[in-house]
């Protein structure tokens, strides 16, 4: 489990994250949602240490991550898989080398064992047989799936996903969502997804944190969203005509 307690972050004179607390549970798809610029990606980056906290704590199974020394932080990070918004695949490496990279760095597996694991991960994200392709040769959806394969290659305990289906067509977005959900449940991973995609919220929102203007505005799950009385959350989730009709059907 990951717990954030009263975290704050200011850039210049703008406070981006204001006293946010929340618990992210294992084997659940934990979503951080909110409008663009509300601070959700900042929260994600604060959690993994890419930004420094002003105050508060981030507990990875009880370990206060920001207070650990650099070596201990690296040990925690070895248990983290992260899917970046743009994939962040290494351009100079093939798909196989990208997925094998964490195994090369942190395991003493034989080459055959590593290749077996790479092929398993690629097959898991439906990219089997694409081992020799470079990131530049992949479509947006394939890049996301390849990045997911790399993120799960070393059996992470925590999986962070930053806008996993932004820029993807609805069908591919659902494939990515389903993959993340399945992987989370299969391997008992604590998964944190930052998203503003309403399909994701409705499909895989086991545990949701809604951020509004940098603050914890609402928490709940996908079923509870349909009965929310929170005005900002309602306006955010049911902004489009399609979602409004879904809301009407759900509340008949």
């Amino acid at each position: 489990m990951i717990e954030i307690k009263n975290i704050n972050k200011t850039f210049g004179d703008r406070q981006i994250v204001k006293d946010v607390s929340f618990k992210f549970f294992p084997s659940k798809t934990n979503l951080v949602i909110g409008e663009s610029g509300c601070g959700k990606t900042t929260i994600l980056k604060l959690m993994v240490g890419l930004h420094q906290l002003d105050s508060g704590s981030v507990l990875f199974d009880g370990l206060d991550f920001p207070k650990l020394n650099q070596d201990d932080q690296q040990d925690v990070r070895k248990k983290i898989g992260m899917l970046f918004q743009g994939g962040a695949l290494f351009d100079s490496q093939t798909l196989e080398e990208n997925v094998r990279f964490p195994l090369d760095m942190f395991t003493d597996l034989s080459l055959k064992e590593k290749l077996d694991r790479v092929n398993f991960c690629l097959q898991r994200v439906q990219l089997e047989g694409k081992n020799g392709l470079y990131p530049a040769e992949l479509s947006g959806g394939m890049k996301k799936r390849a990045a997911l394969a790399r993120a799960i290659a070393n059996n992470p305990r925590y999986l962070f996903c930053d806008e996993p289906n932004s820029g993807l067509d609805p069908k591919t977005a659902i494939v990515i969502d389903e993959l993340i959900k399945d992987i989370t449940h299969e391997y008992n991973i604590t998964t944190i997804i930052v998203s503003h995609d309403m399909n994701s919220v409705i499909e895989i929102g086991d545990n949701i944190l809604f951020i509004h203007k940098g603050e914890n505005w609402w928490t709940g799950n996908k079923s509870e969203i349909f009965h929310t009385t929170n005005k900002e959350l309602f306006n955010f989730v049911f902004a489009g005509e399609f979602m409004k009709s879904v809301f009407k059907v759900q509340n008949k």
Partner: peptide
Amino acid sequence: AMRITEQIDALEIMGIN
């Protein structure tokens, strides 16, 4: 280019110096 495309962040998050 690795910095702006988050590839360096990806390395850091993997626990790599």
